[in-house]
Each structure stands twice: as structure tokens, then as C-alpha cells.
Amino acid sequence: MTRGVALLLALFLLCSSAGASRMQAVPDDDADVVAGWTAYRGNDPVRAMAHYRKAADRNNRVAQFNLAVMLLGGEGAKADPANGVMWLRKSAERGFSAAQFALALLYERGEHVKRSLDEATLWFRKAAEQNHLAAQVGLATQYFLGRGAPRDFKQAAHWYERAADQGDEASAYIIASLYEKGDGVEQDYPRAWFWYSRAAGSGDPAAVLKAREMRDKLPR
């Protein structure tokens, strides 16, 4: 693993470990969710929770997620992690990708649930398959490091490239490195140059340097 890739993975793991505490409620077109969202944005968490609970009881998965966010964060009522996780799981099981990703992070950290990297991988995958970008990065990293899944550079490359296709520059750098080295994919300097160039889009010095190096290795 190159120093640059190792640093990017370390940064991702740091961000994901903090991510569960940054869950935020999201809007929906259900009448109670709309009313709850309006109250939530208007700093009336008690009213917001009441509306979200009504919709959650009707199996609205967005309301279930929003209710979980509030219960886990202690908004509108005293924090209630057990019920927060229950509603989060209900939303995740109904296929809401934001809930699936959030549940994966809880399992990854062992926050409010027993830590299980296998469960984290399972929920990362469910969200990743719905094109949830952060979940794709999370799943790729599980395979890259062999966390909660066998170490598998081919699977890691697949999911990093999916995330890079959505514009994630860190993933673009990692998949570029894999193409450069031939890890999990066939060695391909043009593809490596392409992804290093994408990773350099915001001016990252390491990516800019690697893009130049790979350009010089391209067939003339």
C-alpha cells in the first residue's frame, strides 16, 4: 500500500468513525414528514418528533429514519438509543439507503450496538448497491483492508471505481493507484492517468504529481 493510499484510508476511517453522530433528518413528500421537516427546520423538535412518529407508525421509511436521528441525538426528547436503533433498523430494512449507511457506521463503531464489522459490511453493501456514495467508499475500504470481509482487491477496486464515477476524488486516487500497480485490476496506465487526473481536479498536490508521472508513461 502506498503512503498516499494509506493516508487516504486513514482519513476515511476517521471520518466514518465520526459520521454516525452527524446524521441529519431529511425531507419527504408525506404530509406528516413535511410537517415534521418544517417544525424541525423551525427549531421545534417536539412538534417535529410528533409528526415523524405518526408517519413512522405508518411505515414511512424516511420518517423512521428521521425519528431515529432525533432519538439518537436527544432532539425533542431525552436521548433513547435503544428506540433510535430500532427505528433506524426498520428504515434500513425497508431499503432506505441513508439508514442502511448510518446503521453500518454504528456497527463499525460499536455505538449503541455490539460492534460487528461483518454487519457493517452487510449494511454498507445494501446502501452501496443503491448508489450511496459514502457506502460505496465504506464497502470498498472493508474489502481493501479485509475488515468484516475477506481482503479482496478486485471487489475493492470495483467499489472505489463506482464511487470515483460519482465524483469522489479520494476514491479516484485509490483506484488510480490500483490501476497503476495492477492490484485487483489489470495494470492499465491510461486508466491510472485518467483517475489521477480526476483526483487532481481540486488541485491536490499528490494527485497532480501522480497524474504528471502517469502521463509521461503513456504510449507515445
Rank of each mutant, 00 (worst) to 15 (best):
G146R: 12
Y160S: 03
W123T: 10
V69N: 03
A68N: 01
R89G: 00
A35G: 06
K154P: 00
L13K: 14
E186P: 05
S17N: 09
R215Q: 15
R162H: 10
V185W: 06
Q142S: 15
A79E: 10
M49D: 00
L67I: 04
G146Y: 08
I175K: 11
R212G: 14
Q100P: 03
L88E: 00
P150L: 09
W37Q: 07
D44F: 04
R115N: 11
L72D: 01
G36L: 10
S197M: 08
L209H: 08
A207C: 11
S171K: 08
D30I: 03
A211R: 14
D165F: 09
A50D: 14
L178H: 14
A35S: 15
Y40M: 04
S16C: 12
D204I: 10
L71M: 08
R94L: 12
E213T: 13
Y52H: 09
G201L: 10
R198E: 14
A6E: 14
M214T: 15
K90G: 02
A176Y: 10
F12R: 07
V85Q: 00
G19H: 06
E111R: 11
A98E: 11
A200L: 04
A149T: 04
W195C: 08
A77V: 01
A207K: 07
M49F: 06
L105V: 08
A140S: 09
L178G: 13
Y179S: 11
Y196N: 05
R53A: 15
L122H: 13
F65W: 04
L11F: 04
F101D: 01
D29S: 09
A164R: 02
P219L: 10
Y179N: 14
A140D: 04
L72H: 02
S116E: 08
A77S: 09
P27A: 08
Y40P: 06
L133N: 07
A99I: 00
G36V: 04
A102H: 11
G19E: 07
Q166F: 02
A10P: 01
A18S: 10
R162A: 15
A48R: 12
G203Q: 09
L8V: 10
S177D: 15
Q142P: 02
A120W: 06
Q166M: 07
A92S: 00
S97V: 01
D28K: 03
T141C: 11
H51I: 11
L11S: 07
P219A: 13
A6F: 08
A127G: 00
R3P: 04
L106S: 03
R162C: 10
G84N: 01
Q136G: 06
G146H: 08
A92R: 00
S197I: 09
G4V: 06
F101L: 11
R61W: 02
G167Q: 13
N60S: 07
R109W: 02
R41F: 03
L67D: 01
E108G: 12
A199L: 06
D152P: 02
R191C: 06
A163E: 03
A135R: 02
A170D: 13
E129W: 03
P150H: 07
A127T: 05
V34S: 04
M70R: 03
F96N: 01
S116C: 09
F96R: 00
V69R: 02
L105F: 02
D183R: 14
